[in-house]
Design a protein around this nucleic acid. Structure first.
Length: 439
DNA sequence: TTTTGAGTTGTTCGA
DNA sequence: GTCGAACAACTCAAA
């Protein structure tokens, strides 16, 4: 069983397939290049998730470093495997990699058998007309078809005889400083889900937009590493939980879009805006990355990202809009920074979320929809709880001025920067550049 | 095939 | 302070 982004035993159809009457060896291949670009929190979450899985297997999880095409085949031959099982991967890199692995395995008469995927409905299954026709580009239509299509019920964990082999072991975590990471691994994912079902789901529609209250489910990190499957979540929802179900469907929608258009992982889904007059100013990018823009809600979000590898969804939209429309920096810079630091960073959701904000994605936001960071702050973090948690320089600023400390008649607290740009000016500038790029 | 209606998350301005 | 309209134009999906 080759584990990838499905680091769990329950509701894992590939593992069920591997277990039917056979001994099973659990393998995870660590690509060194993957870890090098990861921030410390993201790296730590992967390592801890793997450690949790290893404990579930009584220490028999085999970790190998290197190129999957070489490594998977090597291990399979070492233990004389009859077959290699895994879940399907629809990402641009995953597809190529699996092609290569399959070819190498087949040269030794070992089949690569793919069962299930990280989605309730695998990409390509929901289509407009006949199979093979283009994917939906409009979310609402996708959602209706996706629900109609339906998905199977969760499957129980099998209980195979686990065998083992030589393991390279896990790499060391890097120092995290003050960071508090969530508990990860399958058991933690279940605990988090049940806690949300009990205490969060009923108020989700009302609370999810307020970063200070933290009313989101926080399931993204578990879905990303596959310590829980979306089928499991969907099975626990009732018809009235429409708002939450729609959020799960967004993840499936973007995965389907990316599978249809692999180039949209790094490039423009709609190419029109590639011609925009971008500044891509390095100093402004650095100020944004470090949370030193002088806009409290933006800085709080960017610092939460560095500290926890997480950012509240509402704030993700605000900081993304700020980078693209206030700093005139291409969405690709922001998307890359997010992927390096987010512990829940999912390529499809990340790339397409950014493109939605930038106006070059599926169902893009109209270009004139530009977030005002001060208005957004006042609306969604009215008492400044969120800002004060991540921007300690602003602790003493009264609520009245927490989202515009520079306007406080009592002066700015020391150590906090003046706004690096004037939002009102840059908003007009962004609108003008969009007009120009349209010819 | 043609037509029609609709489309995640906003802001500003003026009444 | 609240409210409605304007901000554009295009593509997709379904009737």
């Amino acid at each position: 069983m080759w584990f990838r982004r499905d680091l769990r035993l329950t509701d894992n159809p590939a593992l069920v397939a591997a277990s039917s009457g056979h001994d099973v060896l659990g393998l995870f291949v660590l690509d060194p290049r993957l870890l090098e670009t990861s921030g410390a929190p993201r790296r730590a979450v992967l390592i801890r998730t793997l450690r949790a899985l290893d404990e579930q297997l009584d220490g028999r999880l085999v970790i190998r470093h290197g190129d999957p095409a070489t490594v998977v085949t090597k291990v399979a031959r070492e233990v004389k495997a009859e077959a290699v099982h895994c879940a399907d991967d629809f990402g641009p890199y995953g597809r190529q990699r699996d092609q290569a692995v399959r070819a190498t395995l087949e040269a030794h008469d070992i089949p690569l058998l793919r069962t299930g995927s990280p989605y309730a409905v695998s990409p390509g299954r929901v289509h407009r007309d006949a199979p093979g026709t283009p994917a939906y580009q409009v979310y609402g239509a996708f959602y209706r078809a996706w629900q109609t299509h339906g998905w199977p019920a969760p499957v129980a964990a099998p209980n195979p005889d686990w065998v083992s082999a030589r393991s390279d072991g896990l790499p060391r975590e890097r120092p995290l400083g003050q960071v508090e990471l969530p508990s990860v691994g399958e058991a933690a994912a279940r605990r988090a889900w049940y806690a949300f079902l009990k205490d969060g789901l009923a108020d989700y529609g009302r609370e999810r937009d307020h970063p200070g209250a933290d009313g989101t489910s926080r399931m993204s990190v578990h879905l990303k590493w596959g310590t829980i499957h979306p089928r499991t979540l969907l099975a626990d929802l009732s018809p009235k939980d429409e708002i939450y179900r729609r959020e799960l469907a967004w993840r499936e929608f973007y995965a389907a879009v990316l599978a249809d258009r692999p180039d949209s992982a790094r490039g423009y889904y709609r190419p029109e805006l590639a011609r925009m007059d971008w500044d891509n100013d390095e100093q402004k990018l650095a100020a944004w990355q470090r949370g030193l823009t002088g806009y409290p809600i933006v800085d709080a979000g960017m610092r939460q990202l560095l500290a926890e590898g997480f950012m509240h969804n509402r704030v993700r939209m605000i900081v993304a809009s700020f980078l693209v429309k206030d700093l005139h920096i291409e969405w690709t810079y922001g998307a890359r920074h997010f992927m390096n630091h987010l512990i829940d960073g999912d390529l499809a959701s990340n790339s397409h979320g950014w493109q939605w904000v930038a106006g070059c994605g599926t169902d893009p936001a109209p270009f004139f929809r530009i977030f005002n960071p001060r208005t957004q702050g006042k609306k969604f973090d009215p008492d400044g709880h969120y800002v004060r948690r991540y921007v300690p320089e602003l602790k003493g600023v009264p609520d009245r001025w927490i989202h515009e400390p520079a306007a406080n008649p009592d002066g700015m607290p020391s150590g906090y920067p003046e706004p690096i740009v004037d939002h009102a000016v840059e908003r007009i500038e962004a609108l003008a550049r969009y007009q120009n790029s349209r010819g």
